[in-house]
Computed example of a mutant assay.
Amino acid sequence: MRNFDFAPLYRSTVGFDRLAGLMDAALAGETTQPAYPPYNIEKTGETTYRITLAVAGFAEQDLTIESRDGQLVVSGRKPGEETERTFLHRGIAERAFERRFQLADHVRPVSARSENGLLHIELVREVPESLRPRRIEIARGEGKPAELEAKTVN
């Protein structure tokens, strides 16, 4: 496995430190990212997404969903059991977990629901009006230039 040094990027760019940090985290995360719980990421519309995690054995009060620093953090903690149980086979893990998802700019979670052992988190990309593409009309004729009027392209 090759190691990449992103230090030269920090010296010659301004404002791209987040991008270099994302690449560094992605390369480091390939080997350290746990496989539990399994999840799906799907695109449900042009600007909507859904993350589905398999959280069998966890109740809604055992799960926490937080959005912070451009990340979505989903964690599950089971309270301690009062009675000691003896398992002949334990195939359902029910162990504590923390799963992190890096969110793109302007993507935010809007809702979450739990059904049949699956946790569904709905996300939406909301690009601010000021960052959307605009069409600039070209004035025809001679004389003094008219005010440019920008129209949002849909």
Rank of each mutant, 00 (worst) to 15 (best):
F6P: 04
F6S: 10
F6I: 13
A7I: 03
A7H: 02
L9V: 15
L9C: 14
Y10G: 11
S12K: 12
T13G: 05
V14D: 07
G15F: 08
F16P: 00
F16A: 14
A20T: 12
A20G: 15
L22S: 12
L22Q: 13
L22E: 11
D24R: 01
D24I: 04
A25T: 14
L27K: 00
A28I: 10
A28F: 02
A28G: 15
G29F: 01
E30K: 11
T32W: 05
A35Y: 06
Y36H: 10
Y36A: 14
P38H: 13
P38S: 14
Y39R: 09
Y39F: 14
N40E: 11
I41S: 07
I41K: 08
I41N: 06
I41Y: 11
I41C: 07
E42N: 11
E42H: 09
E42G: 13
K43L: 02
T44R: 01
T47Q: 03
T47E: 03
T48V: 05
T48G: 05
Y49Q: 05
R50W: 04
T52R: 09
A56N: 09
G57F: 07
G57Q: 11
G57S: 05
G57C: 05
A59R: 10
Q61W: 00
D62P: 05
D62F: 03
L63G: 11
T64E: 03
T64Q: 09
T64G: 03
E66I: 07
E66L: 08
D69I: 02
G70C: 09
G70Y: 01
L72V: 10
V74N: 00
V74M: 00
V74S: 00
S75M: 07
R77W: 01
R77Q: 14
G80K: 08
E81W: 02
E81P: 03
E81K: 11
E82V: 10
E82P: 08
E82T: 15
F87C: 01
H89E: 14
R90Q: 12
I92E: 15
I92R: 15
A93S: 13
A96L: 05
A96T: 12
F97R: 08
F101K: 04
Q102A: 15
A104W: 03
A104I: 07
V107S: 07
P109W: 01
P109E: 07
S111H: 07
S111M: 06
S111L: 04
A112V: 09
R113T: 14
R113F: 13
S114W: 03
G117K: 04
G117W: 03
L118C: 00
L119T: 02
H120R: 03
I121D: 01
I121N: 01
L123H: 01
V124P: 00
E126L: 13
E126I: 15
V127Q: 02
E129L: 13
L131G: 02
L131M: 10
R132C: 06
R132V: 11
P133T: 09
P133A: 09
R134H: 09
R134E: 06
R135N: 09
R135S: 10
I136T: 12
I136A: 09
E137G: 00
I138K: 02
R140S: 05
G141D: 07
K144A: 07
K144S: 03
P145S: 04
P145R: 05
